[in-house]
Design a protein around this nucleic acid. Sequence first.
RNA 1: CGGAGAGUAGCGCAGCGGUAGCGCGCACGGUUUGGGACCGUGAGGUCGCCGGUUCAAAUCCGGCCUCUCCGACCA
Length: 543
Amino acid sequence: MRFSRMLIPTLRDAPKDAGLISHKLLIRAGFIRPLAAGIYTLLPLGQKVRLKIEKIIREEMDAIGGQEISLPVGVATPHEEAVTDLVRREIRSYRQVPLVLYQIQTKFRDEPRPRGGLIRVREFTMKDAYSFHSSEDDLDAFYPKIRQAYEKIFRRCGLEPVIVQGDPGLIGGKDSHEFMLLSDAGEDQVALCEQCRYAANREIAQIFKASVNPTEPMLPLEEVATPGCESIQALAEFLKITPERTAKAVFSIADERDFVFALIRGDLEVSETKLANTVGARTLRPATGAEIRSIGAVPGYASPVGLSRQSAVKIVVDDSIVHERNLVSGANKEGFHLRNVNYGRDFIADVVADIALVREGDPCPNCQSPLILKNAIELGHIFKLGTRYSEAMGAKILTQDASEKLLVMGCYGIGIERLMAAVVEAHHDEQGIIWPEEIAPFHIALLVLNTDRTEQTELAEKLYALLRVAGLEVLYDDRSESAGVKFNDADLIGVPYRIVIGSRSITNKTIELKRRRDGAKRELSYAQGLEALVHTLKAERGW
RNA sequence: CGGAGAGUAGCGCAGCGGUAGCGCGCACGGUUUGGGACCGUGAGGUCGCCGGUUCAAAUCCGGCCUCUCCGACCA
């Protein structure tokens, strides 16, 4: 393409409301334009990159037997249901599975809070894929394939995400992995163990919980006055004990219906995600003081001890509590706590579960080394759905022995524009974007510096034509701008290679080839003819 | 949805009661052209919207809208 004919509105200054580097650069370099909060127009350059990413995804999905389809854009129907419905109608026999269907389609999400340019938007392109299997074993066998396909997709886009255990959510499959690109621009957090490579989304990461005093004999309950001790910290200081010796109560309302009373060791925090998954809640919000009092508890002085059991109150106890002895917990009386509270003797839970939120430095569940927390961008998510949808919708097949069996499903997603933004986050410098070759909008930027010198423009035109014939995508900067403008735009846009034709090219019979990634330069002679030069160039690509 | 900030030319900003400004960009002419050149001329704005106060509002007051950032969801 001729730069002069292409819509590439580069900007010197980034709009002030752009925060992230990827956001600034994609706008400045003329890839995207904001239309409304979380709604972006992809300009020609942005569209080119998106199509290249989609091409990679198609190739890798097809390589593992995926078949592209296009599901109708249901108003309220999740695509899990639409695709399960399709398969329920069309698939009868175990001989027809495994079946892998995918689509690349625009998604609309009424995001309460779009942010970070393309990282989180209201409208975006998603590749969603679904696999159908005759058994758990077959899904288990397929799962590594999709995982590898994802690794390839991201690697071809120039990214090396960390694969972490993901939140299986309410859908509650047994395996779930997220492809996380470590980046400060990310809004997720992952917990990583550098020793044993344990990696999980922070929300569901486990920690090794050593009991502080599991062998201490149970002592009798004892009420103690603790005026003004409404926080664990205040309580621990007042009683001169460590927070590990206390039990903390956290109150939530699940799905605006059930009261959830969570109890965890005083030094730990509750993971809302874990808690929600434990009680099977779609939404969870903190309870108000009035709601807490309504079940007979006192904010700041609450415990399950002596609480009259109500069916609407679900008591969830973290496993950290179960193994401890003689904790201090609330007396459900303003200004009083109880010493020597013991699980089993003084109270029991409806559910005992791990609901702790990992913190930096907590011991790894596998090797007990300190975990580190990092911000990350979630590029993709794969998980085993199991039979949740096939059961709900009656998607069955006949097995070899003519019995009916529920299909076992997996589902797998990638957000395309977010991936594009993540690539920019990972690959840029002060000058602009540095696209990995496979998804760059162009292979080569061809710059002619003095457009009023016919020797130069003629040379450039010839080279432009030959490069295209050779199958290269060329952005030919034929504008009569000053050299600096052209250099800066080429760098900003992030084309992997740059050819410069200037006065030197005429006198020395050479052109300059520069690699964007590291600035490596070469002077290539065309004394043997331009065709030979183009041949060399192709050979030199990736030198 | 809760909290904080911001809306003035395409982008970045100034002006904060008296008829709308600057830089960049854009158009035209000329000189330039190896890292965002220079001179001259010019186009471009219902100052987010609605109402109020005032002789007079971009400016003061009220309401609304939009956007950005920080907290609860997700690719």
